[in-house]
Design a protein around this nucleic acid. Structure first.
Length: 538
DNA sequence: GTAGGGTTAG
């Protein structure tokens, strides 16, 4: 009796609150509005219940948790505890998931203590939720400990521990767990394959990628969920097999916005910015696909590479319309786009608007200042970064040393190379060594640069030799250049192709020829195909 | 009434 009364009252309440019949129909079209409304109805029903059993409390708590509303779930929990009702495994499993989603490490740990105190640590659902929660917090050791102490494990336990390792950048251990899972007789499902696709991409194992693809095709799992299709598109894109990624994408029975974003990102990250733009244009023709934050973050770097300022600005307009201009990911892409296209004032103004607690926005603006020869300003921003308590990372030093190099700040560059190791404990990568060679070579210290390469504790790659070759070119030292060319022709050709392409794009940008990159790309393909040598451009 | 999933910035 009271149930039907509540339904009628709430429908009326919603109507009075502005949901006329038209709006109410709108609720059913907009899942978010509908969810908010239906949860408020559930809460009202719950409040008016004369008696609540464990099922009712859990239904209310899990309802809030599943909709990402951890604060309201916590309110219900406090009410439940105040009535002397204890949490059972169902309550705990729901709350742990909410802690993971809201990155609430403290509450999650407190609930884990409750689990141990009340002997719930042998419950399968609780353990699986714990594995996943600790993985989301980045505490892989805790996830593994929970997994090892489990007496009974099911498919979800195995999938959780495989995904935990995969998502924390340990593909080898993840693969080890996958093999153990098979040995223990547990059959993988499509969610196992989602993790496996990502593991293979991280391991760059092209041969295994084909096996995984075939395994999924034989079971017709692309029809299970769009997620598995997106994972395979991403796997091929990350392996550089962008054509395979495109074929899988085109064959997907259902495509969502993430499918499109994945393909756009794939093209951008494989250096095919024009193709990324083509896919973005195709996406806009699909009326059922609404671009989101991921879309802007996928397409903006493509416009940066093309120097296509006008197109980038158009995206900026859409970002503002969607209230995403303060999003740290989108904001960083916009800073980079304006900065690399020569609009440093706009880049700086955006930089001071976006949240900058992490190093990424700082690295971007330091890099932008550096490529335009404002080394001293870049150094000043690095000092500001330290003053604001932001910890620099390996990318900060690449940007900073490159900035020093382009402005002839040799002493400063050397100083930061040492500071990075001594003060911040960052081991130099090939990129840092390349920066040092560029710094010394560009300043004319060719001998010093060569001795530096010889003393490197790791094998120099094309970028390191390329930096020295570039210096030979700048200082007109053809003799050294020819020697280097003979010594490592293959490496140099690749480096030259990249260098030429970058230089060409930069020139276009400076001349205001946005997006006119065809000639650069054509020459790049000649290099790749071996139909011309770097000597042709010497 | 409970647990597992895909893309993204420098």
């Amino acid at each position: 009796m009271w149930e039907s009364k509540c339904w009628e009252e709430d429908t009326l309440l919603a109507y009075k609150a502005g949901f006329g019949m038209g709006c109410l129909c709108g609720c059913f079209l907009d899942p978010y509005v509908f969810t908010v409304w239906i949860i408020s109805v559930a809460r009202k029903l719950f409040d008016e219940m004369p008696f609540r059993d464990m099922g009712c409390w859990n239904a209310m708590i899990s309802g809030f948790c599943q909709n990402g509303n951890a604060a309201d779930a916590l309110d219900v929990l406090i009410e439940m505890r105040s009535e002397g009702v204890k949490m059972d495994p169902v309550t705990v499993a729901s709350l742990l998931t909410a802690c993971a989603q809201s990155n609430d490490n403290l509450s999650g740990t407190l609930i884990h203590l409750y689990v141990i105190k009340h002997g719930l640590e042998f419950d399968l659902f609780v353990c699986n939720a714990l594995i996943n929660m600790y993985a989301k917090f980045g505490c892989l050791g805790h996830s593994q400990r929970v997994f090892h102490e489990m007496e009974v494990r099911d498919l979800v336990s195995w999938n959780s521990i495989v995904a935990a390792n995969e998502q924390n950048d340990d593909p080898i251990t993840a693969l080890g767990f996958f093999n153990r899972m098979q040995l223990s007789g547990v059959k993988p499902d499509w969610l196992t394959l989602v993790s496996l696709a990502s593991i293979i991409a991280q391991l760059s194992d092209a041969e295994m990628s084909r096996s995984v693809h075939g395994f999924i095709l034989r079971r017709d799992w692309f029809r299970e969920d769009v997620v598995i299709g997106n994972a395979v598109v991403d796997m091929y894109a990350k392996l550089g097999a962008i054509d395979s990624a495109r074929t899988v994408f085109e064959g997907l029975p259902v495509k969502d916005v993430i499918s499109w974003n994945t393909l756009i990102t794939g093209y951008t990250q494989n250096g095919l910015a024009s193709e990324a733009n083509e896919v973005y244009c195709m996406m806009q023709e699909c009326k059922e696909i609404i671009p989101n934050q991921g879309t802007w973050v996928s397409i903006l770097p493509a416009y940066t590479h093309l120097g296509a300022l006008q197109q980038g600005m158009r995206v900026h307009g859409r970002v503002i319309k969607n209230c995403l201009y303060l999003d740290v990911f989108v904001g960083t892409c916009l800073i980079d786009m304006y900065g690399k296209c020569g609009r440093l004032d706009d880049a700086l103004s955006l930089f001071y608007q976006v949240p900058r607690m992490s190093s990424v926005a700082w690295n971007t603006i330091i890099s932008c200042l550096g490529v335009h020869g404002h080394g001293e300003k870049a150094v000043k921003l690095f000092k500001d970064m330290i003053d604001e308590g932001v910890k620099p990372d390996h990318v900060t030093f690449v940007s900073l040393m490159a900035a020093c190099s382009h402005s002839g700040l040799v002493n400063e560059g050397e100083l930061y190379f040492h500071l990075m190791q001594k003060e911040y404990g960052i081991k130099p990568s090939l990129k840092h060594y390349g920066c040092m060679v560029d710094l010394l070579g560009r300043a004319g210290h060719l001998n010093k640069a060569y001795s530096f390469i010889k003393k490197m504790p790791v094998q120099p790659d094309a970028s390191v030799w390329g930096a020295l070759l570039g210096a030979c070119r700048i200082h007109g030292n053809a003799e050294w250049g020819k020697l280097l060319q003979k010594a490592c022709l293959k490496l140099i050709q690749r480096t030259w192709a990249t260098m030429f392409c970058c230089q060409y794009l930069r020139n276009n940008r400076e001349m205001g020829r946005e997006g006119d990159h065809c000639e650069g790309l054509e020459r790049f393909h000649h290099f790749k195909a071996g139909t011309c040598s770097c000597g042709d451009y010497w």
